[in-house]
């Protein structure tokens, strides 16, 4: 052993400090392990859903890493927006027609919740409300006004939810997020049946880790739903060049009608 080395070992006082160093190393190792496992990640596949002619919804997979004991909630929604709707009222005691307006403020266009277990069991009510999880929490944050700006009954919020559920745009699926623990880490995954009724939009996919009734961590990503190809061209044309679109619709119908008429000699249907 060289002189300098023995001097160094003498300074370290090996017999007394060794357990402390080991303990620190183990502690640091344990801490690093917790951070790497607990760091919540979120990924969505595919991150872009193109709406083409064959589109009839899609299948999304939301997955990521989480702490082994945490429950997971996945929320897919848009930023809160205002929705203008009509009330169906009985007119003259005979027919039902749209009459009277309601403005729903602060509600997303779409809202889909997925969790590892019942939301009411894994989260405190305050956390549900703070994170906007569940229809009650959504209702608490929203405002609903009639055409005169007066607040309307909560009944209309329930009707709003019923309408959105019918359109497959609002849904809550408890116990659908699956967790896997293994040598490669702790993963979660949920398979989402994306409804074709969902409008083109950049949707927010938010993942929340829940422990002891509270949200302890969040991660988010986005899924872009957009019209593509000829669908996008036609839709853009109908909006931006409505005259040209109308002209095209007429010309194509004329050509098709005359073409089919020529094929069958006797022509199409009459009116």
């Amino acid at each position: 052993m060289s002189r300098s080395t023995s001097k160094l070992l003498g300074k370290v006082r090996f017999p007394h400090r060794f357990p402390l160093i080991i303990a620190c190393a183990l502690g640091l190792s344990a801490l690093l392990q917790t951070v790497s496992v607990g760091a919540l990640t979120a990924e969505v596949q595919p991150a872009r859903i193109p709406i083409t002619f064959g589109y009839h919804g899609a299948t999304l997979t939301v997955s990521g890493e989480s702490a082994p004991t945490d429950d997971i909630v996945v929320k897919i929604s848009t930023e809160p927006t205002d929705t203008h709707m009509k009330r169906k009222t009985k007119v003259g005691g005979v027919v039902w027609m749209k009459k009277g307006d309601i403005e729903f403020k602060g509600l997303p266009l779409a809202y889909m919740l997925y969790s590892t277990a019942d939301l009411g069991r894994i989260l405190e009510p305050a956390d549900l409300n703070a994170s906007g999880l569940g229809y009650e929490a959504l209702g608490a944050k929203a405002t609903m006004e009639d055409e005169e700006g007066k607040a309307v009954d909560h009944y209309w919020f329930d009707e709003f939810i019923k309408l959105k559920e019918k359109e497959c745009l609002y849904s809550i699926h408890e116990g659908t997020v699956v967790r896997r623990h293994g040598a490669t880490g702790n993963q979660f995954q949920v398979v989402v049946d994306w409804p074709f009724q969902a409008q083109p939009h950049n949707y927010i996919v938010e993942v929340l880790a829940v422990r002891d009734g509270h949200v302890v961590e969040r991660a988010s990503t986005r899924v872009l739903v957009e019209q593509a190809g000829l669908v996008a061209t036609l839709s853009g044309m109908a909006t931006k060049h409505a005259g040209l679109y109308g002209l095209m619709a007429v010309i194509v119908a004329l050509v098709a009608g005359l073409g089919v008429g020529a094929v069958f000699k006797k022509g199409g249907g009459s009116h």
Partner: peptide, 30 residues
């Protein structure tokens, strides 16, 4: 058709084509 497309943007050209395919053949069979 032109005015509905221009003013109301309510003409779905693809839907019209699908209907057309069926109706012209249906008319001949009928």
């Amino acid at each position: 058709t032109f005015l509905q497309a221009y003013s109301n943007r309510t003409v779905d050209f693809i839907l019209a084509l699908l209907l057309l395919v069926g109706s012209v053949f249906g008319a001949q069979i009928g």
